[in-house]
Design a protein around this nucleic acid. Structure first.
Lengths: 337, 337
DNA sequence: TTGAAAGCGCTAACAA
DNA sequence: TTGTTAGCGCTTTCAA
């Protein structure tokens, strides 16, 4: 039987050429006579030689590996993003290491450390901490942040949806339908949420609508489903007392929107007659409720593509014309408006 | 400013010890005086030194990397599994490379190749092809399959839910509620589906219920949501004609179950009065419909833990007592039964 | 207890 | 056009 071949040295020995000649052939670099190239290639084939990527990475000081930091994979927005990015990177010859931090900055730190020692070539950070532990992230030369803007926006590249415009569209539509909209959100001071709040407020103002204590409703993120819906019902009742005509609600996520929808139904409110709802994301769940959810769609495909493009440009040392990119969103009008 | 430290050599220089002493400290191996150990550790800390894993992998001929092959990340069952496994592996010191095949065996092949040249130590295959291209998977010494049983069950380790028992429970409950159950499924000949069908049929038989042409309803997987629901409505109407009393439906996934729920509502059928439904998985969506879905919960946590445990044992060369493990499922009774 | 040095497989600068 | 060789950062054997 053919003996095990695992190094370029073995190939060199078998073929009778030197290591460097073989290396040139394998990497299609430098000049080797056509004849010898073929000979060597044949032997490579025959013995199923595969170059050792560690030795290569060690030598080249680059790994062809990209790290993705994600808060979790339970959320369809994140998992979709990760899925897309991973595919695009793979087709560009990169291996992806996915790090699920569970929104735990300690874990995030551990991952960053590991990624460092893995010497990833670049980093994609989805909705990461605003500021990183020990500023560990500055250890990485090529970083693209997605969704949540990093504090030091000069330093890192960024791609995200135009949350401001999304919020404006949603709010405007709700007003058009004759409601005085409220915004329902989970407690958060992330940049996307801030932008949405701003878009919401600006639109209210432009329409000469006055904010009151029921305009912005902020729910604790820790609550379980039942408690969340219980709270929502309470708010809905208050709103019913205070507002004329149908209620208008802009929810900052589709899951929250569906929670509201379900809460409304449970107190015999009809959607959209009594309550009009616009969500955010266009998550799969938007089509799995009844009526189907009207929502602002984030273009995950574009976000992924842009992020990878920027990252690869950065990796190639290209001058980046666009370090900061906002992707447009779109109203998907279904049954809750 | 502290100058950049990236090798054990730097640490050696700074600390005044030799490379090998530093190495011993870092790896907690060999004997080093307590005093010096502390000194070195301090410097390691201070300079945020992380050892280069390529050099290590090259030297040790092992990567501490595990590959996960998954059909996709859109499905909460898979993404949950991946998330859990990744976490457990990470806490065991492994890096995970996640490969999303989109159920495309060509992509699967490419990934397997890449993983091979990355020299992953082991492989976890979630719901992979029954048989692999070119039998590439036999290139890997340590493989654990999850969910879908590999053809050559002798060769690979396996962990999955007890689908048979899950189907039996669901069917039995439906019968208890006075229905003559039908099973709704997507076309598939994967082992989990086969087992569920068998469980369903066996339970029917034991209850002296005769199968007819509406007992097993198989939907094309390619259909979009609207078409799927359209078909479901058709089947529902046929069932209404043929069956006495409330309809009983066991759906092989929660998404499908919710499709059925929505289709039923859209033709003014009340759930659970007119139609009783049991799903499978206990996906998040089960709590985002109304009424909330009664379903068979797969214990993703246990599956993940078992799979990793088996993989690690295999990696450590331990004799495996259990190469084939079925995890029990559980009925979660909510509002659709 | 500590250190010197070989060598994992690779690439690339340089020599022939 | 081809070959020799240094060295990437690490672990480990063996000597001091």
């Amino acid at each position: 039987m053919e003996k095990k071949v695992n190094s370029i040295k073995d190939i060199a020995k078998i073929s009778g050429f030197s290591i460097s000649t073989v290396s040139k052939v394998i990497n299609n670099k430098g000049r080797v006579s056509e004849q010898n190239r073929k000979k060597i290639l044949q032997i490579v084939e025959k013995y199923h030689y595969e170059r050792n990527s560690f030795a290569r990475a060690l030598r080249l000081q680059q790994s062809n590996t990209i790290g993705i930091i994600t808060p979790n994979l339970n959320n369809s927005f994140f998992s979709n993003l990760v899925e897309n990015i991973e595919k695009i990177l793979f087709s560009n010859g990169f291996i992806t290491v996915i790090c699920d931090t569970s929104i735990d900055s300690k874990r995030e730190g551990q991952y960053l450390k590991k990624l460092k020692s893995q010497q990833v070539d670049g980093l994609i950070v989805i909705s990461g901490s605003q500021t990183f532990e020990d500023n560990q992230i500055s250890n990485f030369k090529h970083v693209v942040c997605i969704d949540r803007e990093p504090e030091d926006i000069q330093k890192y590249c960024y791609v995200g949806s135009n949350h401001y415009s999304g919020a404006r569209i949603a709010t405007q539509e709700l007003i058009k339908k004759g409601t005085v909209p409220s915004l329902f959100m989970y407690e958060s001071d992330s940049s996307p949420i801030k932008e949405r709040i701003k878009g919401f407020r600006d639109t209210l103002k432009e329409n000469s609508l006055i904010e009151d204590n029921l305009s912005l409703i902020s729910l604790e993120q820790t609550l379980d489903v039942d408690k969340t819906r219980f709270k929502i019902r309470k708010y809905l009742r208050s709103l019913l007392n205070k507002r004329q005509g149908p209620l208008g609600i802009f929810a900052t996520s589709d899951t929250l929107a569906v929670d509201i929808l379900l809460a409304a139904k449970s107190i015999n409110l009809n959607v959209p007659n009594d309550v009009r709802i616009v969500g955010f994301d266009d998550a799969p769940i938007a089509r799995y409720c009844s009526p189907e959810l009207t929502t602002i769609r984030q273009n995950i495909q574009s976000i992924s593509e842009e992020a990878v493009e920027i990252l690869i440009s950065s990796l190639q040392g290209k001058q980046l014309k666009n370090r900061y990119k906002k992707i447009e969103v779109e109203l998907i009008d279904r049954g809750t408006l």
